Amino acid sequence: MDVLRVDDQLTQDERLVRDTVRAFRNEAVDPYIAEWFESGNLPVRELARAMGGLGLFGMHLQGYGCAGSGAVAYGIACRELEAADSGLRSFVSVQGSLAMAAIHKYGSEEQKQRWLPGMAAGELIGCFGLTEPDHGSDPGSMRTRARRDGSDWILNGAKMWITNGSVADVAVVWARTEEGVNGFLVPAGTPGFTTSDIKRKLSLRASVTSELAFADVRLPADALLPDAKGLKAPLGCLSEARFGIVFGAVGAGRACYEAAVDYAKSREQFGRPIAGFQLTQEKLAWMEVALGQAGLTALHIGRLKDAGKVTSQQVSFGKLANVRAALDVARQARTILGANGVTLEYPVLRHANNLESVLTYEGTQEIHTLVLGEAITGISAYRG
């Protein structure tokens, strides 16, 4: 149902990634994802080992057991994972593009050797603590602080809405110090470091979301990420994660679209399939157009990234455009399915609920709009 045949532009290796991840998803995720979503549980360790075996964690990073794949190949993997559920792509994104990328880019050689091979294999899980209960879009106002005590650091504060938080073996935590914003590696079980899961979610239910709390957590000097200087460090990691969403949103939208097409062909009203009615075909046509445009946007940004030419503004463009397109597709698909569209027998409303969170995290729709506004006008509308 890809009229533009966007995937014809993929290389042989990129198609292999697509087919491998799709086969894994079809066998190990799709039959169970509705149950995981309904129960609010995800078999994290089992999935981590399986996805680590496929080389999906930090697959765009070099060395330390990482696959060293290109940006488009990583994006295609995200697309296929999110076609199953946004929670699955979020798991891989937080592990690889946030936690592992931070250690890979800003960590010491000892830190890289200690954590990255196990994380790449799925034997160790990481999380990324930046967002706080009172500071989401404005991380520069964070209240989490670390102060020196001899050669050690004492960490106090809290982080909120942290994917993988309670199951992580290590948390990459950003805190304000006398030198500015710095990153710290906080292993699970460190005295004073506690987590609590956020319950009663109506979105991203097949994902572990937690609050992290730090009460006089004593960390050794080598817990500091030595090359992470200032707020640009975590924001650079966020750009990596947003890139995965540019592709992932296409997968979520595609799953909704395919469900709507299949349903419209089989559902009969007034003596014929509803796919034969003009209004239904109009909906499907606009869904096809939206996904075709989103797929081309993702591929173009991916090629720019592979060429070392991508900008954060371009990633914001893709995140803003593609998530909104996928959400529009999900909502239209739900109308085609009628009452059946609100059940877990079909993936549509599950994806729509998830996409409401994707619209907000890794930069809200409003923030990405203002990023583009600044790129267009040269005037910042959200900075003092």
Score class of each variant (00 low, 15 high):
283 K>C: 09
300 H>Y: 15
325 A>Q: 01
290 A>E: 04
263 Y>D: 08
262 D>G: 12
308 G>F: 10
338 G>Q: 13
290 A>Q: 10
282 E>G: 04
268 E>P: 02
328 D>L: 07
310 V>H: 13
320 L>W: 04
334 R>M: 09
287 M>D: 00
327 L>T: 02
262 D>H: 09
262 D>E: 13
280 T>W: 03
333 A>D: 08
310 V>P: 08
258 E>C: 03
339 A>R: 09
299 L>F: 11
333 A>E: 03
251 G>P: 01
283 K>G: 03
299 L>N: 01
331 R>A: 13
332 Q>Y: 12
273 P>I: 07
306 D>L: 08
316 S>M: 06
316 S>I: 07
325 A>T: 05
270 F>I: 07
338 G>M: 10
256 C>S: 05
305 K>T: 12
313 Q>R: 15
334 R>H: 15
315 V>G: 04
316 S>V: 05
338 G>D: 12
338 G>R: 11
253 G>C: 10
339 A>V: 14
267 R>H: 15
255 A>I: 02
294 A>E: 04
303 R>H: 05
326 A>K: 00
278 Q>L: 15
310 V>A: 15
301 I>A: 09
301 I>E: 07
311 T>H: 13
318 G>Y: 01
318 G>A: 09
259 A>L: 01
286 W>M: 07
281 Q>N: 10
310 V>G: 10
280 T>G: 02
262 D>K: 13
303 R>A: 11
286 W>I: 14
309 K>P: 00
311 T>R: 15
325 A>F: 07
317 F>Q: 07
264 A>Y: 03
297 T>Q: 04
304 L>R: 14
283 K>T: 03
320 L>P: 00
272 R>L: 12
296 L>G: 09
293 Q>F: 10
301 I>C: 07
277 F>T: 07
335 T>R: 15
319 K>E: 01
328 D>T: 08
304 L>F: 12
324 R>S: 12
300 H>D: 14
310 V>D: 12
295 G>R: 01
317 F>E: 14
310 V>Y: 14
273 P>L: 04
254 R>Q: 09
289 V>Y: 06
271 G>M: 05
273 P>C: 06
320 L>C: 06
337 L>I: 12
255 A>K: 01
308 G>E: 08
337 L>N: 05
269 Q>K: 12
255 A>G: 04
294 A>D: 03
300 H>M: 14
332 Q>C: 11
307 A>Q: 15
326 A>V: 03
308 G>I: 07
331 R>T: 12
310 V>F: 12
254 R>M: 09
333 A>Y: 03
258 E>M: 11
291 L>S: 06
280 T>K: 01
290 A>R: 02
314 Q>S: 14
251 G>R: 00
253 G>L: 03
318 G>R: 00
291 L>Q: 02
316 S>P: 08
323 V>Q: 00
307 A>K: 10
255 A>C: 10
307 A>G: 05
